[in-house]
């Protein structure tokens, strides 16, 4: 979004240089109950060998992969182009004279900020508006595995690339965030992620758990059903 040429509505923040190249990057996922770890993707169409996805997560114990159903229609995955992690990030442009707020789209499972957020210290650098940061499921409503996380990140990257050239406004972020939410719901209905039954708030915000939802082939086993 922060990008090329098209004349963009200026946002409330002083955005020094977001009109030059098209670069969006995204990072940071908060996964399961592990500390939020940097997950960064950049929208640059260059460099960064695709294989090196800049290890976002340190899934200490890789959570048990609970793949549900047998549905294996793989969406062609975008390779992630993470933002390289930075050192000495300071919170910037957070004060009142910059409006005291930030450009974001906040829904329950997806928070997108037009800023760099340091994964460890949570410093919030709003001057880096060429990056988008996604925080996935901060309330831990779902059980995430690295695989499903990466699917969401890949989808996010795809959307960010898709919206390249759009003005960097809340509206665009909301479009992206909503699409990611819909994607998460699809993952849930396809049985790829599950509700976290130990979540602090258990209100099944994406629909009550059920068996045989979106299950085209009837090869469910016992574990696939909701515990």
């Amino acid at each position: 979004m922060a990008t090329a040429s098209s004349c963009m509505a200026s946002t409330k923040f002083s955005i020094p240089s977001w009109i030059r190249g098209s670069r969006i990057s995204t990072k940071q996922g908060r996964i399961n109950s592990f500390p939020s770890v940097p997950f960064s993707v950049s929208a640059q169409q260059q460099q960064q060998p695709p294989s090196q996805v800049e290890e976002p997560r340190q899934f200490n114990p890789p959570p048990p992969l609970e793949v549900g159903g047998g549905s294996t229609q793989q969406p062609q995955k975008k390779e992630l182009r993470p933002v390289e992690s930075q050192v000495n990030v300071r919170s910037r442009n957070m004060s009142r004279e910059y409006g005291g707020q930030w450009l974001s789209s906040a829904t329950r499972h997806v928070r997108i900020y037009a800023a760099y957020i340091d994964p460890v210290t949570s410093e919030f650098d709003q001057t880096q508006t060429d990056k988008l940061t996604i925080i996935l499921d901060p309330t831990n409503e779902f059980l995430w595995t690295p695989d499903t996380c990466n699917k969401v990140y890949a989808y996010f990257q795809e959307l960010v690339d898709h919206y390249e050239g759009a003005p960097l406004t809340e509206y665009t972020l909301r479009l992206i965030g909503s699409d990611v939410e819909h994607y998460i719901r699809k993952l849930l209905y396809d049985g790829e992620i599950k509700y976290n039954m130990n979540a602090r708030v258990l209100n099944f915000s994406m629909g009550k758990p059920r068996i045989l939802f979106n299950n085209n082939n009837n090869n469910i086993s016992e574990e696939d059903q909701i515990q």
Binding site: Q101, W102, S104, A106, T107, R108, R111, R174, L175, G177, S178, D179, E181, H182, R185, S205
Partner: peptide
């Protein structure tokens, strides 16, 4: 209406 998911103002 755009297909927005759960608009809210929390940040």
């Amino acid at each position: 209406a755009p297909n927005f998911y759960e608009i809210q103002d929390a940040h």
